[in-house]
Design a protein around this nucleic acid. Structure first.
Lengths: 68, 68
DNA sequence: TAAAAATATCCCGATTTGGTATAAAGGAGG
DNA sequence: CCTCCTTTATACCAAATCGGGATATTTTTA
């Protein structure tokens, strides 16, 4: 997941992101370290939160925007 | 997931798909009925198997091809 | 360099997952 | 209409994975 890169580029802390997504800071941390993987629903929430495609979030494309 | 639609359009049975992906037919069935959700790794395998983007597989775009 | 902010890790209960086995549904031929 | 074969769905279960609270560690800032 390209999560840390995206989050930092927006200048958002794990805590703020976690609160916005109704989850915990430690959960975000684990996604970023790769210790845990979000479920699909959470994955989508994250992509939407940052307005990027899931493919981009998963490092499958270079295009950061959501595909229409 | 747009899984059933994609799989049928390729004329592949759940069983064949399952064997190609080293899993079980019932697992595919449950993905299609929505009873279970694949993990991210499996999700990516499925997208690659059908050569579609994850976003398309998740019904987030109309473009079936992988985004470069 | 002390305090605050940010991030990582520990432990845990609970949910979710995938597998095996089996049942049900669908189709082709007789 | 049956029977066989293929395809798809469901039941049950052990194991893996997840998220949360608490806490430790690291990083930043004043």
């Amino acid at each position: 997941m390209r999560l840390r890169e995206i989050r930092k580029s927006r200048g958002i802390s794990q805590l703020k992101m976690a609160m916005d997504l109704n989850t915990n800071q430690n959960t975000i941390s684990r996604y970023e370290t790769g210790e845990r993987q979000p479920g699909i629903d959470e994955l989508i929430k994250i992509a939407d939160y940052f307005n990027v495609s899931v493919d981009y979030l998963l490092e499958r494309t270079n295009n950061p925007t959501i595909q229409k």
